[in-house]
Design a protein around this nucleic acid. Sequence first.
DNA 1: AGGGTCGATACCCTGAAGGTATGGATCGTC
DNA 2: GACGATCCATACCTTCAGGGTATCGACCCT
Lengths: 279, 279
Amino acid sequence: MDRLETRELAYFVAVAEELHFGKAAERLGIAQPPLSRAISRLERRMGVRLLERTSRRVALTDAGAVFLGESRQLLDSLDAAVRRAQRARQPGRLVMAVRPGSASGLVADLVRSAEVGSHDVVFTHDRPAALRDGRADVALLCIGTDDLTGLRTAVLTEEAPYALLPRDHPLARRTVVTVAELAQDAHFDPECPTVGLDEIVDRVVLGRLVTVVGSGAVERIPSEVAAVPVSDLLPTRLALAWPEGASRPAVTAFVRSARAAAARRALDAKDTGAVAVQG
Amino acid sequence: MDRLETRELAYFVAVAEELHFGKAAERLGIAQPPLSRAISRLERRMGVRLLERTSRRVALTDAGAVFLGESRQLLDSLDAAVRRAQRARQPGRLVMAVRPGSASGLVADLVRSAEVGSHDVVFTHDRPAALRDGRADVALLCIGTDDLTGLRTAVLTEEAPYALLPRDHPLARRTVVTVAELAQDAHFDPECPTVGLDEIVDRVVLGRLVTVVGSGAVERIPSEVAAVPVSDLLPTRLALAWPEGASRPAVTAFVRSARAAAARRALDAKDTGAVAVQG
DNA sequence: AGGGTCGATACCCTGAAGGTATGGATCGTC
DNA sequence: GACGATCCATACCTTCAGGGTATCGACCCT
């Protein structure tokens, strides 16, 4: 059995998603008969029935469901591979993905301290995806909220959790709150939201949201929003992440220097007390 | 830019490994000119120079080195995807990879307790690879010694470390030893070896090896070999592992029942004291 | 029964992939 | 420094896999 071609994977994904040969063919920009043949040949070569089809119904078999997931992942990985190779043209240049609004002093420190060539920082909400699709080489993300599958991480720092509340909220003048107290509010959403900080702030100001952010974000909120330490939440662990099997020396060099920079920052913070948990 | 085909990846890998178009073409079973053209077209479509070539020398560019790693991984993943789909034909049937000689009561318990359909157990030394290439659905491996990249794990049990020594070894009659004491022996090899237990035993009997194994293996060694608890090593953590993104319900069901079985085992052991660390 | 829908089959055709011959650059050697 | 050897690139030809059109056959719904 010779090797499957990516075209065949793309064809199968289209049919598996549409569950309709005609629609899938249209989506692929080809006619229906060649698509039928391609799928048949694919099944024959794999030795597995992927789709159960009558003239009225197309359905995935168990094997087909598995292969659909695998195929999607493979096609994504292929695109990622190309992007990574394209960006590796400048071997020293790294791209770091950061959530908009989270570019605190930490990010500046990382960029400043890196010994490797030049850097770019892309701001995007879906940082794990940016790593997986090859748009970025490293990313700053939260352990526990972000999806870490396929990524390696190095914890850089911990951020104390702060509740964001409207100025006139009953809990706004407290020195410390608990999750249970916050949960009283109908607008409480404990998930580290995937939207930008600016949008979070807007929604809090309007009384539409009560949520928790890391201490790094506190210095960036306007006076209309109160930030109150949360006593019974574990600190958010901020980590530098990069794809497994990253073969670029610049990545490992950057990780090393980032660890050192984070350690220095932690020392400074202890000395001055500026970023202490108690605020 | 339309999508790269796996054939192009395979061609590139061949050239990148041989660093010689003629040799690579021979390996691929095609003539040299089509290979040259395929690589050129690949580079043109990607917009990146992958190989630096003169009539005397072929070398990888930085981008090429990155793309080589990515391509290898993609081709492996493709083969794995096909195998996984093929085996998913029997959705209930699971294949578990176990190291030869480590099929202690734990494995039997796992297989017995599983609620899902039928199971197979394959015995192989390279269990992580068996998971990655799709030969197995789950595997039993050691955290700390096996490579866990791309795998999810659930720790099932901890095994106390025992030193294996020839019967007539100076330390053989001790009730407990330390790593420092073992290290005196020129044949001491602390790495959890990747060979089978039978080979380990053979080498220990011949006085060619002193090593450490988990308590599960102790009941399987002959009387010519002494097993002495090691006091200053952390217990080996045995974990069930499976590939990230496994989309088969049978896998998650098996993991759940395995966790339960391991918990029951731990309780039994505590009651009877049979597998206690003190032996 | 008849029309509509949809996947499979039959048959044809185009173009991409592969083969052969050869060019052109570079290195080693006498 | 001319010559041969080596090796990648180019030119040109050939083949067949992949795609198109027409149509069949199965199935559902009035």
